[in-house]
Design a binder for these strands. Sequence first.
DNA 1: ACCACTAAATGAATGCCATTCATTTATGAG
DNA 2: CTCATAAATGAATGGCATTCATTTAGTGGT
Lengths: 230, 230
Amino acid sequence: MPAVSAAQGRSTGNGGAQRRRAGRPSAAVLDKAGITAAALELISRKGYDGLTMAALAKVLDVAPSALYNHVASKQDVLLLVEDHLMSLVDLSGFGSGTWEDAVRAWAWSYRNVFAEHTPLIPVIAVLPVTDAPQTLAMYETVSKGFLDAGFPQERIIPAIVALESFIFGSAYDVTAPEDIFDSGSMAGSTPNFSAAVRSSAAGQERGRPADTAFSLGLDALISGLGALRS
Amino acid sequence: MPAVSAAQGRSTGNGGAQRRRAGRPSAAVLDKAGITAAALELISRKGYDGLTMAALAKVLDVAPSALYNHVASKQDVLLLVEDHLMSLVDLSGFGSGTWEDAVRAWAWSYRNVFAEHTPLIPVIAVLPVTDAPQTLAMYETVSKGFLDAGFPQERIIPAIVALESFIFGSAYDVTAPEDIFDSGSMAGSTPNFSAAVRSSAAGQERGRPADTAFSLGLDALISGLGALRS
DNA sequence: ACCACTAAATGAATGCCATTCATTTATGAG
DNA sequence: CTCATAAATGAATGGCATTCATTTAGTGGT
């Protein structure tokens, strides 16, 4: 159970005191599960800027070059993290309630998970699903949900892709600063925009602006895509 | 007219032969417009990986440190590029045709421009509009288009944000490899997904898959959001 | 029981990158 | 005329991912 060894290696702690001597250790120190866990810990503690191969090695109490016996590159580490996060997305709606409710719960959960991990979005967008079992499992469940709801088979993938595109874009939006639409000194030359910004800020008492936009767009997509069902 | 000087500096060429001697030159060599143009040239020639401060300096026939007299950081360069690209987005539909057609043309154009520049998307998402005049101009035109079409003022910004989120996510989708949904050896355990992938590939004779998904989602958003008009 | 191969660690490079700093030279305001 | 300021050079600096030679430990075949 190498994951346990890795966890022990980390909890043993050794705060940099006596170093391990060179050569293969009796019990393996590293494995993918341990690297993934350490990366997630590092990300939550220091953010993605803090996720360097050197920092990761330090958390695992290992020399940086040791990591390359288990992953081919830093991109590989990001891939491990990405696939782990996919397992956190809520799929419970598919199979129980209506298609609309299932999609809504899935989309909110998906957006919320990746709003905390926007640096992974460029990775996901280009990642072949073959290399990501959790991701593949999610697509299978969602596809089945769409099929059972009466979607024509050839429309399922485009519909999921459209929803995902909206979800990824919206995840970025969550991270935007509050004053992103403040026109500052240029406000005079943008009367319609400035008024719209003021008005939407005023009309919104509860919740984040990003949530309002997400809710609005998601409802539009769900009703528009739902019409494709036979 | 410093932009001209910069252009001359670049066309003079000097292919690295005799170096400029230290100290302030009689005519300024650099300015923001020239830096922006050089960055765009570099990006189109070598991609975003090739856009380094050193490479940019070389194109402009200048020492890397000289750039920092005009921009505070590389992020600043990306911001200049981003704002320039915004001026390429098609706004001609607003003011002529229907709201639906205007939004459709705007959205396709917006997506196509940034599909070639996805590394800028994280920059845009966090960029206060104050620092980006072209971006601000675009929002003004689009806001006016929504207002004239009968949108309640407080819904305009959320509606635009929802559309933009979909556009950014879809821009990533354009860059995805063709075989991104190939399940490979895992296909056996994902029957519904694999069948959906096969079916959507078969049903689609013309155009890129990304275009199909974008068209589908955009129509859904336009009809859903259009219903908000009074 | 030996031996060769492979796996997994260390530690010392390597090369690239953004950024900073001291220095030099030119311009323009008072 | 002079002096602050702007705009260039060139030489660091520190951080980064990655590679390589080396060391040690397990393993499969004979």
